[in-house]
Design a protein around this nucleic acid. Structure first.
Length: 435
RNA sequence: GUGACCGUAGCUCAGGUGGUUAGAGCGCCAGGUUGUGGCCCUGGAGGUCGGGGGUUCAAGUCCCCUCGGUCACCCCA
């Protein structure tokens, strides 16, 4: 019998005060709000698309021969349709852009997103079956400043979180014409070495030869040393464009490493491609990646190419990279300004009333439910770092008062119940101005 | 999909070569204070040792299977 109280492999719960930062819900909301802030500052609006898409959209958009489509998709069949849990966000966003005629809006469109994606891989450090991506897209222009802006934005987000050892690697893949001519040249060069290549590389030689470039097998890297470079096949326009992108990056002090072997595993990329890596988060060291994808739109049904560039980053990997500076991440129990204590059942109603009044007055108020001793309730107030506790017992109910206790000084005062909100407001405004 | 290692309390982990009722620290609950937190002291709850099968007089410990986890290959965020 299957253990029913276990989440599925490679998918995790996020819950308060989890030991590992990557599972701690407070860490997630903290990071999400920071990311949102930066996105808004750069002028990006949030876009949310369904988690389910038609399988054909992803297959066409991402590319039939990619690893993602050929072996990593969670698909489900229902009736005559085949759906897929989205493995990435770019194709769905482009679909949405076309579907809602968003090109009709004035100016270029800037979008950001964050949410779960799914790939059926074996889980390991920094790689989960349900994982979360955040990213940004500029759609509607081929201006090289868009490429530079995307990388600048990406870099700033990681900089903001104190990730200083980031390395930005960039390359240009050229247009589709250059890519197909380069592809032929690479196949011509590699075919004589075919016997010396690994099985996967041999397969790729016919299906997706560019992917052989980022092999990690040393013998293959040696063979590739004298292979033709993609830069030799790229048009002058494209190279000029690449120079402009690099120039803009340099102008705003974004350091980068040019890597002519950098290729991307998704078919829709062309021209600018980039990857941001960092050490210390395991073998999956790519925090983010992206590039230009002008040809995605016609691939999924648009009449013409649509200039677009974007980046995608992994939330879980970001948190792993932050592990070292864990003191910057939220941890510990939820804190309250006020903790309301009822001593005995006769005080329950009054305590509930006081707590609700204060909550409606925008204070953060905690209260234990059930019948626990005063001592136990005080302990909870302390545990949650309440600044003041409000005590209500038999005597207070008779007098229509409450005891307000300052948890720092241990001083107590009696306050009429009708003035309780006013008094707490005074006390806490004093606290916030004096500290 | 392939490989290596690992599964003992809520958490972090002890439990040589099989041998009484499976332990510690932290956390949790209660008491020490008939209505007062943190510190301290005392006590308590909590484990089918991931699950199933086998070897044995005896299995947390050895063997097999299985389910998970972790890491790596591969690939990507």
């Amino acid at each position: 019998m299957k253990n029913l109280t276990k989440s599925i492999e490679g998918a995790m719960d996020l819950y308060p005060e989890a030991v590992r930062p990557v599972e701690r819900s407070e860490v997630w909301s903290f990071l999400e709000s920071k990311i949102r802030e930066v996105m808004h500052r750069y002028g990006y609006s949030e876009i949310r698309t369904p988690i389910l898409e038609y399988t054909s959209l992803i297959a066409r958009g991402v590319g039939q021969n990619t690893d993602i489509v050929s072996k990593e998709m969670f698909t489900l069949e229902r009736g005559r349709h085949s759906y897929v849990l989205r493995p990435e966000m770019t194709a769905p966003i482009m679909r949405s852009y076309i579907q809602h005629h968003l090109h009709q809006k004035p100016g270029v469109q800037r979008y950001f997103y964050m949410g779960p994606c799914f790939r059926a891989e074996r889980p390991q450090k920094g790689r989960y079956r349900q994982f979360h991506q955040f990213g940004a897209e500029i759609i509607g222009t081929d201006d090289p400043r868009a490429d530079a802006e995307i990388m600048t934005l990406m870099s700033e987000i990681f900089e903001l979180f104190g990730i200083s050892n980031q390395r930005l690697r960039i390359n240009t893949l050229g247009d589709s014409d250059a890519r197909s001519r380069y592809r032929d040249a690479l196949v011509n060069y590699l075919t004589p070495f075919k016997e010396k290549l690994s099985q996967t590389s041999q397969d790729r030689l016919s299906r997706n030869p560019l992917r052989i470039l980022d092999t990690k097998i040393e013998a293959e890297q040696t063979i590739l040393e004298h292979a033709p470079l993609i830069s030799e096949y790229i048009s002058k326009d494209s190279l000029d464009n690449y120079e402009l992108v690099k120039g803009f990056l340099t102008a705003v002090n974004i350091p980068f490493i040019e890597d002519p072997m950098l290729v991307r595993g998704l078919d829709y990329y062309c021209h600018t491609a980039f990857e941001l890596e960092v050490d210390g988060i395991g073998a999956q060291n790519a925090l983010a990646g992206g590039g230009r994808y002008d040809l995605l739109a016609p691939e999924i049904g648009a009449k013409h190419p649509i200039g677009a560039v974007g980046f995608a980053a992994g939330m879980e990997r970001l948190i792993l990279a932050l592990n070292d500076c864990e003191e910057d991440l939220p941890c510990g129990p939820f804190t309250f300004e006020i903790w309301v204590i009822a001593i005995g059942e006769s005080a329950h109603a009054a305590a509930f009333h006081v707590a609700t009044q204060l909550r409606r007055s925008r204070f953060r108020v905690g209260m234990e439910l059930g019948n626990r001793s005063l001592k136990a309730q005080m302990r909870l107030a302390n545990h949650h770092k309440a600044r003041y506790t409000i005590l209500l017992g038999d005597q207070e109910i008779i007098n229509e008062t409450a005891i307000v206790k300052d948890m720092n000084t241990s001083e107590e005062e009696s306050v009429d119940l009708i003035h309780i909100v006013k008094r707490i407001t005074e006390l806490l405004s004093h606290v916030s101005t004096s500290s």
